[in-house]
Design a binder for these strands. Structure first.
Lengths: 99, 99
DNA sequence: TAGGGATATCGGGAAATTCCGATATACATT
DNA sequence: AATGTATATCGGAATTTCCCGATATCCCTA
Protein backbone atom coordinates (compact mmCIF):
# COMPACT_ATOMS: atom_id res chain seq x y z
CA UNK A 1 0.00 0.00 0.00
CA UNK A 2 1.55 3.25 -1.21
CA UNK A 3 0.76 5.84 1.45
CA UNK A 4 1.37 8.83 -0.79
CA UNK A 5 -0.82 7.41 -3.53
CA UNK A 6 -3.63 6.71 -1.07
CA UNK A 7 -3.44 10.21 0.41
CA UNK A 8 -3.47 11.67 -3.11
CA UNK A 9 -6.57 9.66 -3.89
CA UNK A 10 -8.20 11.03 -0.75
CA UNK A 11 -7.13 14.63 -1.26
CA UNK A 12 -10.17 15.48 -3.36
CA UNK A 13 -13.59 16.30 -2.00
CA UNK A 14 -15.50 14.25 -4.53
CA UNK A 15 -13.36 11.14 -4.18
CA UNK A 16 -13.59 11.38 -0.41
CA UNK A 17 -17.38 11.60 -0.67
CA UNK A 18 -17.54 8.61 -2.98
CA UNK A 19 -15.57 6.50 -0.53
CA UNK A 20 -17.89 7.56 2.26
CA UNK A 21 -21.04 6.92 0.20
CA UNK A 22 -19.80 3.43 -0.57
CA UNK A 23 -19.48 2.76 3.14
CA UNK A 24 -23.26 2.56 3.41
CA UNK A 25 -24.46 2.29 -0.16
CA UNK A 26 -28.09 1.47 0.70
CA UNK A 27 -28.22 4.76 2.57
CA UNK A 28 -26.92 6.86 -0.29
CA UNK A 29 -28.12 5.23 -3.49
CA UNK A 30 -31.51 4.18 -4.81
CA UNK A 31 -32.31 0.46 -4.88
CA UNK A 32 -30.88 -1.53 -7.77
CA UNK A 33 -31.27 -5.08 -9.06
CA UNK A 34 -27.99 -6.40 -7.73
CA UNK A 35 -27.17 -6.56 -4.04
CA UNK A 36 -25.09 -3.48 -3.23
CA UNK A 37 -23.30 -5.20 -0.38
CA UNK A 38 -22.15 -7.89 -2.74
CA UNK A 39 -21.24 -6.13 -5.98
CA UNK A 40 -21.29 -2.46 -5.11
CA UNK A 41 -22.88 0.48 -6.90
CA UNK A 42 -22.80 1.10 -10.63
CA UNK A 43 -20.96 4.05 -12.14
CA UNK A 44 -24.13 5.74 -13.34
CA UNK A 45 -25.55 6.06 -9.83
CA UNK A 46 -22.33 7.49 -8.49
CA UNK A 47 -22.22 9.85 -11.46
CA UNK A 48 -25.77 11.05 -10.73
CA UNK A 49 -25.03 11.72 -7.11
CA UNK A 50 -21.66 13.37 -7.61
CA UNK A 51 -22.76 16.05 -10.04
CA UNK A 52 -19.67 15.84 -12.21
CA UNK A 53 -19.46 14.50 -15.74
CA UNK A 54 -19.46 10.78 -16.40
CA UNK A 55 -15.89 10.87 -17.68
CA UNK A 56 -14.64 12.62 -14.58
CA UNK A 57 -16.36 10.16 -12.28
CA UNK A 58 -15.03 7.24 -14.26
CA UNK A 59 -11.53 8.65 -13.89
CA UNK A 60 -11.98 9.29 -10.17
CA UNK A 61 -13.17 5.73 -9.67
CA UNK A 62 -10.03 4.54 -11.44
CA UNK A 63 -7.87 6.63 -9.16
CA UNK A 64 -9.58 5.22 -6.09
CA UNK A 65 -9.23 1.74 -7.50
CA UNK A 66 -5.53 2.19 -8.28
CA UNK A 67 -5.02 3.30 -4.69
CA UNK A 68 -6.57 0.00 -3.65
CA UNK A 69 -9.40 1.44 -1.61
CA UNK A 70 -12.18 0.26 -3.93
CA UNK A 71 -12.62 -2.59 -6.40
CA UNK A 72 -14.83 -3.17 -9.40
CA UNK A 73 -16.93 -5.92 -10.88
CA UNK A 74 -18.20 -5.84 -14.43
CA UNK A 75 -21.62 -7.39 -14.96
CA UNK A 76 -23.09 -6.96 -18.40
CA UNK A 77 -22.87 -3.34 -19.38
CA UNK A 78 -22.48 -2.20 -15.82
CA UNK A 79 -19.40 -1.75 -13.70
CA UNK A 80 -20.08 -1.92 -9.99
CA UNK A 81 -17.69 -0.38 -7.52
CA UNK A 82 -17.48 -1.23 -3.84
CA UNK A 83 -15.06 -0.57 -1.04
CA UNK A 84 -12.17 -2.91 -0.47
CA UNK A 85 -12.73 -3.21 3.24
CA UNK A 86 -9.47 -5.05 3.81
CA UNK A 87 -7.54 -2.20 2.20
CA UNK A 88 -9.51 0.42 4.13
CA UNK A 89 -8.69 -1.40 7.34
CA UNK A 90 -5.05 -1.64 6.34
CA UNK A 91 -5.02 2.10 5.71
CA UNK A 92 -6.50 2.82 9.12
CA UNK A 93 -3.93 0.61 10.81
CA UNK A 94 -1.13 2.19 8.79
CA UNK A 95 -2.28 5.63 9.85
CA UNK A 96 -2.67 4.47 13.41
CA UNK A 97 0.95 3.39 13.58
CA UNK A 98 2.65 5.79 11.19
CA UNK A 99 0.96 9.12 11.82
CA UNK B 1 -10.18 20.15 10.62
CA UNK B 2 -10.41 20.18 6.85
CA UNK B 3 -10.01 16.58 5.73
CA UNK B 4 -9.11 17.43 2.15
CA UNK B 5 -6.48 19.93 3.26
CA UNK B 6 -4.95 17.42 5.65
CA UNK B 7 -4.83 14.70 3.01
CA UNK B 8 -3.24 17.15 0.58
CA UNK B 9 -0.62 17.98 3.16
CA UNK B 10 0.09 14.27 3.55
CA UNK B 11 0.13 13.46 -0.14
CA UNK B 12 3.79 14.24 -0.53
CA UNK B 13 6.61 11.91 0.38
CA UNK B 14 8.79 14.54 2.04
CA UNK B 15 6.00 16.04 4.13
CA UNK B 16 4.94 12.58 5.24
CA UNK B 17 8.52 11.83 6.27
CA UNK B 18 8.80 15.09 8.20
CA UNK B 19 5.67 14.29 10.18
CA UNK B 20 7.04 10.86 10.96
CA UNK B 21 10.47 12.19 11.95
CA UNK B 22 8.82 14.63 14.32
CA UNK B 23 7.08 11.75 16.01
CA UNK B 24 10.37 10.70 17.59
CA UNK B 25 12.65 13.67 17.06
CA UNK B 26 15.47 12.42 19.33
CA UNK B 27 15.69 9.35 17.10
CA UNK B 28 15.98 11.30 13.86
CA UNK B 29 17.80 14.50 14.66
CA UNK B 30 21.11 15.31 16.34
CA UNK B 31 21.02 16.77 19.84
CA UNK B 32 20.29 20.47 20.15
CA UNK B 33 20.27 23.02 22.94
CA UNK B 34 16.52 23.17 23.43
CA UNK B 35 14.44 20.18 24.48
CA UNK B 36 12.97 18.66 21.33
CA UNK B 37 9.96 17.28 23.17
CA UNK B 38 9.11 20.76 24.34
CA UNK B 39 9.80 23.08 21.40
CA UNK B 40 10.41 20.74 18.48
CA UNK B 41 13.16 20.72 15.88
CA UNK B 42 14.54 23.74 14.09
CA UNK B 43 14.08 24.25 10.36
CA UNK B 44 17.78 23.85 9.59
CA UNK B 45 17.89 20.31 10.95
CA UNK B 46 14.83 19.28 9.02
CA UNK B 47 16.30 20.90 5.93
CA UNK B 48 19.56 18.96 6.37
CA UNK B 49 17.77 15.64 6.69
CA UNK B 50 15.26 16.16 3.92
CA UNK B 51 17.72 16.91 1.13
CA UNK B 52 15.63 19.62 -0.47
CA UNK B 53 16.37 23.32 -0.52
CA UNK B 54 15.75 25.48 2.51
CA UNK B 55 12.99 27.40 0.77
CA UNK B 56 11.15 24.23 -0.17
CA UNK B 57 11.34 22.85 3.35
CA UNK B 58 10.17 26.14 4.79
CA UNK B 59 7.18 26.04 2.46
CA UNK B 60 6.44 22.40 3.30
CA UNK B 61 6.52 23.19 6.98
CA UNK B 62 4.01 25.98 6.35
CA UNK B 63 1.73 23.58 4.52
CA UNK B 64 1.88 21.09 7.37
CA UNK B 65 1.25 23.88 9.84
CA UNK B 66 -1.73 25.23 7.91
CA UNK B 67 -3.20 21.74 7.94
CA UNK B 68 -2.90 21.86 11.71
CA UNK B 69 -0.72 18.79 12.10
CA UNK B 70 2.34 20.69 13.33
CA UNK B 71 2.96 23.94 15.16
CA UNK B 72 5.89 26.32 15.46
CA UNK B 73 7.69 28.31 18.11
CA UNK B 74 10.11 31.08 17.30
CA UNK B 75 13.04 31.40 19.68
CA UNK B 76 15.70 33.89 18.70
CA UNK B 77 16.68 33.27 15.10
CA UNK B 78 15.32 29.75 15.15
CA UNK B 79 11.89 28.43 14.39
CA UNK B 80 11.16 25.10 16.00
CA UNK B 81 8.47 22.83 14.64
CA UNK B 82 6.80 20.01 16.52
CA UNK B 83 3.78 17.83 16.03
CA UNK B 84 0.41 18.99 17.25
CA UNK B 85 -0.44 15.73 18.93
CA UNK B 86 -4.03 16.75 19.61
CA UNK B 87 -4.58 17.41 15.90
CA UNK B 88 -2.86 14.16 14.92
CA UNK B 89 -5.15 12.30 17.28
CA UNK B 90 -8.16 14.12 15.89
CA UNK B 91 -7.10 13.09 12.40
CA UNK B 92 -6.80 9.46 13.41
CA UNK B 93 -10.22 9.51 15.00
CA UNK B 94 -11.70 11.25 11.99
CA UNK B 95 -10.24 8.62 9.72
CA UNK B 96 -11.38 5.88 12.04
CA UNK B 97 -14.97 7.03 11.78
CA UNK B 98 -15.15 8.49 8.31
CA UNK B 99 -13.05 6.15 6.17
C1' DT C 1 -25.82 -7.30 -37.18
C1' DA C 2 -27.59 -2.81 -36.20
C1' DG C 3 -28.71 0.23 -32.72
C1' DG C 4 -28.63 1.84 -28.10
C1' DG C 5 -27.07 2.22 -23.43
C1' DA C 6 -23.12 2.03 -19.89
C1' DT C 7 -18.52 2.86 -19.18
C1' DA C 8 -13.66 3.94 -20.46
C1' DT C 9 -10.34 6.55 -22.78
C1' DC C 10 -8.46 10.57 -25.21
C1' DG C 11 -7.11 15.39 -25.80
C1' DG C 12 -6.93 19.58 -23.69
C1' DG C 13 -7.44 24.23 -21.10
C1' DA C 14 -7.22 26.01 -16.54
C1' DA C 15 -5.58 25.73 -12.07
C1' DA C 16 -2.66 23.78 -8.52
C1' DT C 17 1.57 21.62 -6.98
C1' DT C 18 6.52 20.78 -6.90
C1' DC C 19 10.78 22.50 -6.20
C1' DC C 20 14.18 25.79 -7.26
C1' DG C 21 17.28 30.25 -6.91
C1' DA C 22 17.19 34.85 -5.47
C1' DT C 23 15.94 37.96 -2.18
C1' DA C 24 13.82 39.81 2.04
C1' DT C 25 13.25 39.74 6.94
C1' DA C 26 14.39 38.92 11.66
C1' DC C 27 17.51 38.35 15.12
C1' DA C 28 22.20 38.08 17.42
C1' DT C 29 26.89 39.56 17.78
C1' DT C 30 30.57 42.64 17.30
C1' DA D 1 25.69 50.42 12.71
C1' DA D 2 27.57 46.46 10.25
C1' DT D 3 27.88 41.71 9.57
C1' DG D 4 26.50 36.95 9.83
C1' DT D 5 23.05 33.39 10.49
C1' DA D 6 18.29 31.36 10.37
C1' DT D 7 14.08 31.47 8.26
C1' DA D 8 10.37 33.27 5.18
C1' DT D 9 8.79 34.99 0.95
C1' DC D 10 8.85 35.84 -4.05
C1' DG D 11 8.92 34.65 -8.94
C1' DG D 12 9.01 31.08 -11.99
C1' DA D 13 9.68 26.67 -14.95
C1' DA D 14 8.14 22.08 -15.06
C1' DT D 15 4.86 18.83 -13.81
C1' DT D 16 0.52 17.25 -12.09
C1' DT D 17 -4.32 17.64 -11.08
C1' DC D 18 -9.00 18.98 -12.14
C1' DC D 19 -12.68 18.59 -14.93
C1' DC D 20 -14.61 18.89 -19.34
C1' DG D 21 -16.46 17.40 -24.27
C1' DA D 22 -15.82 14.10 -27.78
C1' DT D 23 -15.14 9.62 -28.99
C1' DA D 24 -14.15 4.69 -28.47
C1' DT D 25 -15.29 0.26 -26.48
C1' DC D 26 -18.12 -3.13 -24.55
C1' DC D 27 -22.27 -5.42 -24.03
C1' DC D 28 -27.23 -6.21 -24.61
C1' DT D 29 -31.39 -6.66 -27.35
C1' DA D 30 -34.27 -6.43 -31.44
Amino acid sequence: MDQVEVFKALSNKTRLMILQWLKEPELHFPPQDRDMKEVGVCVGQIHCKAQLTQSTISEYLSILQRSGLIESTRIGQWTYYKRNEAACLELKQLIETSI
